[in-house]
Design a protein around this nucleic acid. Structure first.
Length: 591
DNA sequence: CTTAGGG
DNA sequence: CCCTAAG
């Protein structure tokens, strides 16, 4: 197997993030993990010893990936018009993403909190094979209905002997989306993780009760042994990155993998693009006219040599600090002759039997808040200067041995995640002039968008101008997190929620949260008619699961009743515990 | 800067 | 989602 690694570094909320991208020969592009994935995984890491699980899960996901059609059910929008990239690549990526998307186990409790957990059926496994799981309201066992059958999440759930079909049902109820994965084990684990809000699920038994996994046997403690604590693992990761990744990816067959090593947080992640990412990529291909912003940016620093080419090419070749590893000599990768000093990395792709060199595609920044870029560049003189220069170096010096060591050293110099978070928050306010930023460089460290690709649509405005409008569909998980946040901190305290509950989602601004909440309210009060005529379209957008809407309504009413009796935590606690079902602090890292 | 509300 | 007015 051929693969190459490359480094992309940028700053996210003041943190240096190093991504190690792995690309398997024959497949498509490099896909850096998005910051939110990163953060999410990080969140997981903070809680438990997830390293093993994540890795393991990855393996599994990959294992069954080939059977999958398209989890998101989204049509493949990209056409021959796209880059010469193989469609397979895209498809694979999407599959991976879709599967990975669900990996985030948070919020499961909100789903089951008040509505799904009923004492009634406790203590009994559902008997799947006897018919439709649990009568309830439900839409038949066919997975065609668009509304998840949440009754399946009630009480104790015994995933063990469910049929695939049934697992799909449960999956849908759990994650609010469908899956086409046919691997039972994967489904079970996935669901289990979702329901238990943890990656720590058994590999053998899947009985979930009250959001907790009922372990029936002494399971895989053995699995954890190797990887031990995060720190040890980190050491390994840092030192043996290459090998680690190599072996990792060889474990997972020939599937494209994107794994990230983030030394700063002592974690090694094997990251696949998540749903959003996939969506973004689709969009990226769809919208191939270079955005105005692109043009601006390009004109700023880029030479004109490419101006004749399509913007797409420009965009895709606009990578920096990407350094193919020696393995490039495997032939699949070829480095073009430098064009006016710039090196274009291309890869040999076979298209229709012909070997074609196409530029490697890297994700480009999307940056809504460009202003923030500058803000983020103003590092704390003392704390960040080193980092800053480091980044600069990393970006500028292509061929230099910007090894893992140096990277990790810098990263290690940084403090714990929490502190880093705070620092990040702080750093926005900081005003130092560590001036390293020509926009050119900044672009690549832009925390807010880089990974999150553009779903940028230019909208002509009445006033003659055209403005970009990015759209990023809200994930179910995001929605749940939002609800959770509102229940914790109260609606209206968007910035709080943003900071505390949405730290992982860089692209959601407090305003976004507010807007989304508004929409949720609208949706929740607009009673969901028994049957939506909306069934006309296949997957316009997953409707928000009823329980969530219910909860939204509850919170709304509740908070309306109690406008703002007092300030301080008491209120918040009261709110949380009162109606909506409190949200337990399962994440030590947050507050 | 953060919220709220309109578009 | 964006923009803007208001605290």
């Amino acid at each position: 197997m051929f693969l190459f690694l490359s480094y992309v570094s940028w700053i996210f909320h003041g943190k240096i993030v190093v991504y190690k991208l792995v690309r398997v020969d024959g497949n498509g592009q490099l896909v850096p993990a998005t910051d939110d994935e990163l953060m999410e995984v990080e969140g997981l890491m903070e809680n438990e010893k997830h390293e093993t699980h994540i890795v393991a899960d990855t393996g599994q996901a990959l294992g069954c990936i080939s059977n999958e059609v398209s989890s998101s059910g989204m049509p493949q929008l990209e056409s021959s018009e796209g880059l010469s990239q193989s469609e397979n690549t895209e498809a694979d990526t999407e599959k991976l993403s879709a599967q990975l998307e669900g990996t985030v186990p948070f919020g499961a409790q909100s789903l089951t909190d008040d509505h799904a957990t009923q004492p009634g059926s406790v203590g009994e496994c559902l008997k799947p094979l006897d018919g439709p799981i649990q009568g309830g309201s439900s839409t038949s066992a066919g997975c065609i209905s668009s509304t998840p059958d949440f009754s399946k999440l009630k009480g104790e759930i015994c995933l063990d002997n469910l049929s695939i079909k049934e697992l799909h049902e449960v999956f849908k109820a759990t994650f609010g989306r469908e899956t086409t994965v046919k691997d039972k084990l994967w489904l079970k684990r996935r669901i289990a993780m979702g329901l238990t809000n943890s990656c720590d699920v058994s590999t053998t038994t899947f009985v979930i009760k009250d959001n907790k996994l009922v372990k029936k046997d002494n399971e895989d403690s053995a699995n954890n042994v190797n990887l031990a604590t995060g720190k040890e693992f980190q050491a390994v990761a840092v030192e043996f990155n290459g090998d680690l990744l190599n072996s990792l990816s060889s474990q997972i067959d020939e599937h494209q993998t994107v794994s990230a090593v983030r030394s700063g947080n002592n974690v090694v992640e094997n990251n696949f693009a998540n749903e959003d990412l996939a969506a973004d990529q689709r969009a990226a291909k769809r919208v191939r006219k270079p955005t105005k912003r692109y043009i601006e940016e390009l004109s700023e620093a880029e030479s004109k040599e490419y101006s004749g080419n399509s913007g797409r090419l420009l965009a895709s070749t606009k990578n920096i600090g990407i350094r193919p590893l020696p393995s490039e000599s495997h032939g699949r990768l070829a480095r073009n002759a430098p064009l006016e000093g710039r090196t274009v990395i291309t890869r040999l792709d076979s298209l229709g039997g012909f070997g074609i060199q196409v530029p490697c595609v890297y994700r480009v920044r999307r940056s809504r808040p460009r202003k923030n870029v500058t803000a983020l560049l103003k590092f704390h003189p003392s704390g960040m200067s080193m980092t800053a220069t480091f980044i600069k170096r990393g970006l500028d010096v292509h061929g230099s041995q910007m090894g893992n060591e140096s990277m990790s050293k810098v990263l290690e110099a940084k403090s714990s995640p929490e502190q880093t978070h705070q620092f990040a928050a702080e750093s926005n306010k900081e005003k130092s002039s560590t001036n390293l930023g020509h926009n050119m460089e900044l672009k690549y460290v832009d925390p807010s968008g880089d990974t999150s690709d553009d779903n940028v649509v230019t909208v002509p405005t009445a006033k003659g101008g055209i403005r970009r409008k990015h759209h990023r569909a809200w994930t179910l998980s995001e929605v749940m997190k939002l609800v959770e946040g509102v229940s914790k901190y109260g609606a209206g305290r968007w910035s709080e929620i943003k900071r505390l509950a949405f730290a992982s989602y860089s692209y959601r601004t407090s305003v976004d949260l507010k807007d989304k909440w508004r929409n949720l309210l609208k949706a929740s009060f607009a009673q969901t008619p028994v049957n939506q005529v909306a069934s006309s379209r296949k997957h316009p957008s997953m409707p928000i699961p009823a329980p969530i809407l219910l909860r939204v309504r509850e919170l709304a009413e509740m908070q309306a009743q109690v406008p703002s009796p007092n300030l301080g935590a008491s209120k918040l606690l009261a709110c949380g515990g009162g109606g909506g079902g409190s949200v337990n602090e399962t994440r030590p890292g947050y507050l």
